[in-house]
């Protein structure tokens, strides 16, 4: 692979630094983030590679990488980074930016899950776990996923189909309306 680097190489990094409040140039590529990341096995780019690609200004490569979507937000990387880089925050920033700019969904299930989750809060004020699981399976066409588990949970009295909406639903809806960054343009 050959990357063409031009005089604007730092622009993308600066954008990310601005959006996240984390100085991208501090990363010295020690790899400690990658060393402790629980999901690195599933990632196409390791966390330190993501940091490097940002430093190289390779926007498309970064924003179409599945890595940010696989990040479990466990903050192990952030906690142990010797340069105090908040990588988990960068992962958040990348997810938000990728949605905003309509990059192709590499981990569609994660995106779908987040959306259904937030819709549930928006409409009820609280999360309804049962409805969330059903809606998620429906949306991702996995109708029988966790069926057995669901049955068992039902027997244990943990599944309820009744709503659990709060009286301040409108207040919560308003929060969603007023919050910036909630801008899913759909896929590009």
């Amino acid at each position: 692979m050959i990357y063409q680097l031009n005089a604007n190489v730092r622009n993308f990094g600066e954008t990310i630094s601005e959006l996240s409040g984390v100085d991208i140039s501090t990363c010295y590529q020690c790899g400690k983030c990658t060393a402790g990341c629980p999901v690195v096995m599933e990632m196409s780019h390791t966390p330190n590679q993501i940091m490097r690609l940002i430093q190289l200004g390779l926007k498309d490569e970064v924003l179409s990488s599945p890595t940010p979507w696989l990040c479990a937000s466990c903050e192990t990387c952030t906690t142990r980074c010797p340069k105090e880089v908040d990588i988990a925050k960068i992962m958040d920033t990348l997810r938000i930016l990728a949605l905003k700019e309509g990059y192709k969904r590499k981990e569609p299930n994660v995106v779908a899950f987040n959306k259904i989750f937030l819709d549930s809060i928006k409409n009820n004020g609280r999360l309804q776990e049962t409805k969330l699981a059903m809606a998620f399976n429906f949306k991702t066409l996995q109708f029988f996923k966790d069926m057995m588990l669901g049955q068992k949970l039902f027997m244990k009295g943990k599944i309820s189909f009744s709503g659990d909406a709060i009286s301040g639903v409108d207040a919560v809806k308003a929060i969603f309306e007023r919050s910036k960054g909630f801008l899913d343009k759909g896929e590009r």
């Binding site: 590529q29 020690c30 790899g31 400690k32 983030c33 990658t34 060393a35 402790g36 990341c37 690195v40 096995m41 780019h45 390791t46 330190n48 590679q49 192990t76 142990r80 010797p82």
Partner: peptide
């Protein structure tokens, strides 16, 4: 080439979890 994130004890062994940034892996 990489730092180590964690060491833990398993029996009489020490498990060292590090990264190899040259091979891009844990």
């Amino acid at each position: 080439r990489g730092r180590v994130s964690k060491i833990y004890q398993r029996g009489d062994k020490l498990i060292v979890k590090g990264a190899d940034t040259l091979a891009a892996c844990q």
